[in-house]
Simulated scan of single mutants.
Amino acid sequence: MSNNDANESLKDLCARVKSILPEQFRDDAWYLIVASVLVGCGKPSELGELYTLLVEGVSDAEEKRIKDRLSDVLMKEWTLVGIPLVVYAVSALGKAEQARLEKRGVKLESEVSEDGLLPFPEKRKNLDLDKAIPDRGTKFLQRLYRENLAPISASWGSYANDFMWMERAVIYGLFLSDHEVLSAVEAELVILSSIMTQGLAAPIIWHLRGLRRLGVSEEDTELVQQAVEAVTVWSGRSVDGWPRVKDVPDDI
């Protein structure tokens, strides 16, 4: 029986996650983990309630900051768990936002045209996809993987060139290495949380190691995993057999 089956509320789960995490993540990095795991575990609709809990009683400026951070979580997470789950999560956030505004007597003005399209945001225009974006992705990829990248890439055989382009230019380049909103460590919390929900041992090891290489101690990384596991079990998924940070075989 999961904790969710035992009727633990999402609010109580959030409090429990904060109590598990090390001090450095208890301020507002905790909800990045909760959001990532909920989506990865097939509970994207829960993000509406999470958003409502997060913005209760905060200033307009803080609400905007929270919204920007949740948006960035989902921008990164689609590369890790897939678009359909993320689209559901975005819709849940949109509905929760609209409900909050209606309570305040504010109407959200839509920019959606009759054909359903929207203009691109300014920061998404004129991206240098030939050099700057792949270079940024490459630097973050190498920061996390170091000497471990070569054997992973070698295992891809004749598919390697296409998929290394995707990693450097798209997955890491456009998304995971964009640290304008979330820091490198916060981005890695999203990456690790999303990958852990899939239970794949090797990628879990890669990103436990990656978090360590970004300066998080072994003890604090273990607490991050315990927080991820709490949300995963609440969501009805098993965490049996997951590797732990003590199982990372490489020097940090």
Rank of each mutant, 00 (worst) to 15 (best):
D5F: 06
A6Y: 00
A6G: 10
N7W: 06
S9H: 01
L13Y: 02
L13M: 07
L21F: 06
L32S: 07
A35L: 06
A35W: 01
V37R: 06
L38N: 03
G40P: 03
K43H: 10
E46R: 13
L47W: 03
E49L: 13
E49V: 13
Y51P: 11
T52V: 11
V58D: 01
K67M: 07
L70Y: 00
S71H: 10
S71T: 14
V73K: 00
L74A: 05
M75F: 15
L80E: 02
L80Y: 00
V86P: 01
S91D: 05
A92E: 00
K103W: 03
K103D: 06
K103E: 07
R104G: 09
K107Q: 11
L118P: 12
F120K: 15
R124Y: 09
L129I: 09
A132F: 00
A132Q: 07
A132R: 10
D135K: 06
K139W: 00
K139R: 15
K139Q: 12
L141A: 13
R146C: 13
L149G: 03
I152K: 09
S153Q: 08
S153K: 08
N161M: 13
F163C: 08
F163R: 15
W165E: 03
W165M: 07
I171K: 05
I171R: 02
G173P: 00
L174N: 10
L176P: 00
H179T: 11
E180L: 11
E180R: 13
V181R: 05
S183T: 09
E186I: 07
L189R: 03
V190I: 14
S194Q: 06
M196Y: 08
Q198L: 15
A202Y: 11
A202F: 12
P203C: 03
L208Q: 02
L208W: 00
R209D: 13
R213Y: 02
G215H: 10
G215E: 10
G215A: 07
E218T: 15
E218R: 15
Q225D: 06
Q226R: 14
V231F: 01
V233D: 10
V233E: 13
G236A: 05
D240C: 12
G241N: 05
G241M: 05
W242S: 12
R244S: 12
R244Q: 08
D247F: 02
D250F: 15
